[in-house]
């Protein structure tokens, strides 16, 4: 499970995350939403032990992130939005490398990553350098690398980036099944339809603070909106999308 208490991160004068408190139970898929710069990535970096909080603390799978970062890192899987990987390696080399970092038996690791690549339909490319691969293929390798050590807690930042419709469907189903197995899933995405469909609960943050939390339906009802997208737009206070698009068109038509 994930339990964050009063989590705060300041960079000089700027407060990226401001006294954030949240809990995600095993078996839950939490949709973590917010406009650009709201503090989502900073929160994820603190929860994954990549960034030290300025204040507050968090527990992941029963371990304090500040006291026991190594134990936390053993139990989590993370898909960063940046998709950073050593791309001059082949998928087989990269997954073997990642498996080694988690002390997986090499034979077990190989059979596991072969299975994962096979499910994603890229087993034929396991020995091809990732520099020569499409964004979608690389994303499949990235997802495999986050799952290969069977983590208890998953942090996913835009995991469907670049995936084709079929692969995206596989991932969405996979997440539901992992949650059913009791895994804890922290899901960040800007694709609100996907969030609405697979997340059991949603937290929306802005300026580092929680604005609203609940199920997609409760958020929609509480904000008197037609959909989660509409609710998000109202809560985070952007201008009307129709007005904005008109301004864009006017700018393009200027002679």
């Amino acid at each position: 499970m994930i339990r964050a208490l009063d989590l705060t991160k300041r960079f000089d004068d700027f407060t990226a995350v401001d006294h954030l408190t949240l809990t995600v139970e095993p078996g839950e898929i939490l949709g973590f939403l917010g406009p650009n710069g709201a503090g989502k990535s900073t929160t994820v970096k603190m929860l994954t032990g990549m960034l030290q909080p300025t204040q507050g603390t968090a527990e992941i799978a029963g371990h304090d992130i500040i006291e026991y970062p190594m134990q936390v890192k053993q139990r989590i899987g993370y898909i960063p939005e940046s998709g950073a990987m050593y791309e001059s390696l082949t998928p087989a080399e990269y997954l073997d490398f990642v498996a080694s970092l988690y002390h997986l038996d090499p034979a077990l690791a190989e059979s596991r990553f072969n299975d994962l690549l096979d499910v994603f339909g890229i087993l034929h490319a396991r020995d091809q350098r990732m520099t020569e691969m499409s964004k979608g293929m690389k994303q499949k390798v990235l997802i495999s690398s986050a799952l290969i050590h069977r983590p208890d807690v998953l942090f996913l930042d835009e995991p469907l980036n670049g995936l084709d419709a079929n692969a995206a469907m596989v991932v969405k189903e996979l997440l539901k099944k992992l949650a059913a197995q009791g895994k804890t899933i922290f899901f960040c995405s800007h694709i609100l339809e996907v969030v609405e469909r697979i997340c059991t609960r949603i937290v929306i943050i802005d300026k580092g603070q929680t604005i609203i939390s609940g199920t997609a339906r409760s958020i929609t009802e509480d904000t008197d909106s037609k959909s989660l997208e509409d609710a998000f737009s109202r809560i985070t206070g952007i201008r009307d999308a129709g007005d904005l698009s008109n301004d864009f068109l006017a700018a393009l038509e200027r002679v």
Binding site: T48, G49, K73, S82, A84, L101
Partner: peptide, 13 residues
């Protein structure tokens, strides 16, 4: 810098 993005969430001392 990419070392951080790829490795920082893994259990490496």
């Amino acid at each position: 810098p990419e070392d951080y993005h790829i490795l920082a969430h893994r259990p490496i001392s």
